[in-house]
Nucleic acid binder design. Sequence first.
DNA 1: GGTCTGACTAAAT
DNA 2: GATTTAGCCAGAC
Length: 117
Amino acid sequence: MRIGNIMKKNKQDFFDKVYSVVAKIPYGKVTTYGAIAEVCGIKSAARTVGWAINGATADLPCHRVVNRFGALTGKVHFGDPNLMEELLRAEGVEFLEDGCVDMKKYFWKAKSVNNLH
DNA sequence: GGTCTGACTAAAT
DNA sequence: GATTTAGCCAGAC
């Protein structure tokens, strides 16, 4: 039996997982699109993660999601280009000279969606 | 309803 | 080593 119904659900699950992971990013920490995608089961879907967050509710700390360099690529979507950085600074996140988050100190990697509290 | 685009990333050329 | 291609998903045109 080759099943054909299972696939359908995974897609929606991806978005759902993205929201779950982002919502659980610890205070003062940041993670990357790729990391989220990987936890959601599709490592290469980093792009889709960004898309998902784009349509996410304001409840999600999307300012804690940066690209793999720690650059605030999504800041333009916060209304004010400076808002994202200010939010992170307010949480104690430090920035490098390049304007990127200090990933060595503040990068947080989700283990798995199910294991998340 | 086919094509393009996007808050990305890695591999291939 | 810089540029291009490929992969992912959903929405806009």
